[in-house]
Design a protein around this nucleic acid. Structure first.
Lengths: 279, 279
DNA sequence: CCCCGGCGATACTGCCGAGGTATCGGTCGC
DNA sequence: GCGACCGATACCTCGGCAGTATCGCCGGGG
């Protein structure tokens, strides 16, 4: 199976439309049709059911879509990591959600930089749910993730810290005078919707709340009285004067973990992880 | 980067010889030389240093070798899992080391088979260190691994049981009358070498002991007085009359875990894992 | 010291297959 | 019933992969 074929299949499987997929791939539609047919013939499996009006995935097709994306990420990672290794410049790329664990991150970078043999760390602040992808396709070497929100499956991890969550409300909101809130009170009695975060594929779930991409955006919406949110305690250090935070004891506790791809054989990465666990 | 190129590079990087690699790939040597050059040009990296007498890997080349193998496994997995999904026959493939955790495995299979909606489980007894590979390239859906011997990195796991280890000695061996032994006593005073297990790549580490592939082979060698071994307690149920087992309290405790590739979305697998954790 | 043998690179050729254009056949909507 | 849309088919072109022949380099043996 060639990566070209995998790319073609992924395009069709995602677009569910040969014409659009071909345009996205920058080729004409007939070669695409033929390529997919060839894959199906070789695998002895029907991957797509085509009527002249619509294309849908079969069960086998859904499996291939998931596996093909993972495989393409692995190929991308191979290319990117080799390119980086070839520059000879040592360095690590760390991804973290913009606005999350800011203090912890600062401490980590300081602690690591003080170590002998520390290499430069390039910090990338990504949108939510982009870190796993970055780790998988080789754009990053290490990430800060937050359980239970992020999935750590497929990575090696070390837990760094655990914290409770607080409800973030506009200053002056009736509930902001309370010393504690329950999740139910936040969702039902605040009168404010919770925001919707993008899913791994960049789309947003359906629902009432506003769509947000990062914490700065979210905090501004809260200040405007358009939303509320339950966030890890550590976000308090970034709250502006027009926002209030109230503990939510029954919200799940959030664990910040440092994660890296399995089988990483880099001295620098090992040093960073060591520094992290010693914090 | 096409999988063909990755395969070519892996062949050369492993053989460190263009001619042999070409023969292994079933092509002539010149196209192989050109293909590697093209990869190097595209990545802007020297992957191999060639003198007219030898070929060696550069640092970047070593990175690509590791990453390329992982990527090729992912591509193989995509193909195999799709083929399996297409048959429509539900079923799980479980790999375990031949001879390890035999009782636990039997109980697991029984417990799962009794569940409603259980699918047939195809058990593959592999050699040591082959399970991870099988899981990674899609030959298997789930594996029984043994920490700390097997690496579980990159997989999702659940711990099933923990046990101590025993020294397995020929019946009548002087140490076999003892009620306990230390690791030091086993290695230094038994007069018998420990066996050498194959590494992940099928090669054997250097050392004095005999090379073994599986437990049956090992037990026979011990009975012949050619080796000794420290194995998990549960192997006792398979010991023949000509072998004796003595607890080794200071040997690391062994945890049997059930492991599966991350992002598996199979109902059947979930059922098997559930049955396993309930044992 | 020279020549031979081994190895990777280069030159040149041929052919397979990926991709393009044109068109067909089926289906839905008006 | 006709037009529009969509995927499949027919046919052609051409780039690039693989093969053969050969070169250039180097080390070892006579």
């Amino acid at each position: 199976m060639e990566t070209r074929e995998l790319r073609y299949f992924v395009a069709v499987a995602e677009e569910l439309h040969f014409g659009r997929a071909a345009r996205r791939l920058g080729i004409a539609q007939p070669p695409l049709s033929r390529a997919i047919q060839q894959i199906e013939r070789r695998l002895g499996a029907e991957l797509l059911t085509r009527t002249s009006r619509s294309v849908t995935l079969t069960e086998a097709g859904a499996v291939l879509l998931r596996e093909a994306k993972a495989a393409l990420d692995a190929v991308d990672a191979a290319e990117r990591r080799t390119r980086r290794a070839a520059t000879g410049r040592p360095g690590l790329v760390l991804v973290a959600k913009a606005g999350a664990s800011a203090e912890l991150l600062a401490k980590l970078l300081d602690a690591y930089a003080a170590e002998p043999g520390a290499v430069p760390v390039d910090v990338q602040l990504s949108g939510v749910a982009q870190q796993e992808r970055s780790l998988r396709d080789g754009r990053a070497d290490v990430a800060l993730l937050h359980r239970p929100f992020d999935s750590t499956s497929g990575f090696d991890t070390e837990s760094l810290s655990t914290e409770g969550q607080v409800a973030v409300l506009p200053a002056g909101h009736p509930l902001s005078v309370r010393t504690a809130l329950s999740m139910l009170e936040v969702t039902e009695e605040s009168g404010l919707p919770l925001p919707r975060w993008p899913l791994f594929d960049g789309s947003y779930p359906a629902g009432p709340g506003p769509e947000v991409r990062d914490h700065a955006q979210l905090l501004q919406l809260i200040a405007l009285g358009r939303a509320t949110a339950v966030l890890p305690e550590s976000c308090r250090s970034q709250l502006r004067g027009d926002l209030a935070a109230v503990p939510v004891p029954d919200a799940p506790r959030v664990t910040t973990v440092i994660a890296w791809p399995p089988h990483s054989r880099s001295r620098a990465l090992a040093g960073l992880v060591r520094a992290a666990t010693r914090l």
